[in-house]
Design a protein around this nucleic acid. Structure first.
Length: 136
DNA sequence: GCCAACGTTGGC
DNA sequence: GCCAACGTTGGC
């Protein structure tokens, strides 16, 4: 069973357009244990929403895990996890944090419950609801 | 720019 | 091993 993810990035540091331009990006620099566990659990081919935090505050597209189970190249001690992702496609309409908060079916998702978690897991149901909000 | 939430650090 | 202080994240 594939799992579904949501990855946050501050667009002035690394935006969806940056990922599109690069083709493939390494998701590193995560220094939170729960986020790390999520990164370590990712498998090649699984999909993740790409969310812009601090600015934008919306899900803009879907990325696909292209390389999983690597150690963070920015961590000299090699204890943190990382993955590589490829831009898959843009959402038809971006889904804002406001829309997510207004949707009762998403009240329990990690993104809302653990606001500061930079890599969150979504259930298949939550994934579908967000696609619905995107007009898909 | 502020502040709440949360993780980490360090003194005891 | 507890907990206060501090730093960081991220929404507002």
């Amino acid at each position: 069973m594939p799992r579904y993810w949501l990855m946050k990035s501050e667009p002035f540091k690394y935006s969806w357009d940056d990922l599109v331009a690069e083709g493939e990006g390494t998701w590193d620099g995560v220094r939170n244990h729960r986020a790390k566990n999520n990164l370590a659990a990712m498998e090649v081919g699984e999909e993740a929403f790409f969310y812009h935090s601090r600015e934008g505050l919306e899900i803009v597209g879907i990325a696909e895990i292209s390389v999983s189970g690597i150690t963070d190249p920015t961590d000299p001690e090699n204890k943190w996890a990382a993955v590589k992702v490829k831009a898959k496609r843009k959402l038809k309409n971006p889904v804002t944090l406001k829309q997510i908060k207004a949707e009762p079916r998403l009240a329990d998702c990690e993104l809302i419950r653990l606001g500061r978690l930079s890599v969150a897991e979504l259930t298949p149901e939550e994934w579908k609801v967000i696609l619905e909000l995107a007009g898909e």
